[in-house]
Design a protein around this nucleic acid. Structure first.
Length: 192
DNA sequence: TGCCCGATTAACT
DNA sequence: GTTAATCGGGCAA
């Protein structure tokens, strides 16, 4: 059984945590899968929600590492981030896609689709599949119902530009598990 | 106060 | 390929 990831794992540079999360297993009430796609956001980054300072919505980003920042996207979907570094750093990793491994039937029911590839391929989709909502904003990832399990030793990570943003589009801060079938969008760049 | 836009998704043509 | 759904935040007035 892999080790549970502790707060110390997240209390490092967001640019170290983000690729290290690839291959880890994210569970919420025993429903979830292997993290195959993430993006890093930093408070000095114009594309980050924290770039212009604290607001009611992004307050959790300015707190300590290891907590969930869940926000409403386009007024419709929920998206899950993990806060990194230290209180005040206002950096976080956006969880963008999972390879489903636990609770497939529950995910299919919540999502209303049968295709395994469509259950968790996208930040809004995976929150719907796992049952994560704004009610879980500020919840620690180290405590139930969250569980994050360490990845295997050997994981091949690819990187490329982030998806769906209009600012700082050139920064290669999107990371993926090489060869995964569960990306929200394909990687064209295969550095690292 | 009002208007525009966005770390998205599904359902269209 | 385009568009609607729907709401928090930035910014002009």
């Amino acid at each position: 059984m892999p080790a549970l990831l502790r707060q110390a794992f997240f209390a490092r540079s967001v640019h170290a945590v983000a690729p290290d999360l690839i291959g880890a297993t994210l569970l919420f009430a025993n429903v979830g899968g292997v993290i195959v796609e993430v993006e890093a956001y930093h408070h000095t980054d114009p594309a980050a929600h924290s770039f212009r300072g604290p607001t009611e919505r992004n307050a959790v980003m300015f707190g300590p590492p290891g907590f969930a920042y869940v926000y409403r996207s386009y007024g419709i979907h929920w998206c899950l981030n993990v806060v990194c570094e230290q209180a005040g750093s206002a950096s976080a990793v956006l969880i963008r896609a999972l390879a489903p491994t636990h609770g497939l039937a529950t995910m299919r029911r919540r999502r209303g689709v049968k295709d395994e590839r469509l259950l968790c391929a996208g930040p809004g989709r995976l929150c719907e599949a796992l049952g994560i909502t704004g009610a879980h904003n500020g919840h620690p990832l180290g405590k139930a119902p969250f569980r994050v399990l360490a990845r295997p030793d050997l994981v091949e990570v690819v990187s490329g530009p982030r998806i769906g943003i209009t600012k700082a589009v050139e920064l290669p801060w999107r990371y993926g598990l090489k060869g995964s079938r569960f990306f929200s969008k394909p990687f064209t760049d295969t550095r690292r």
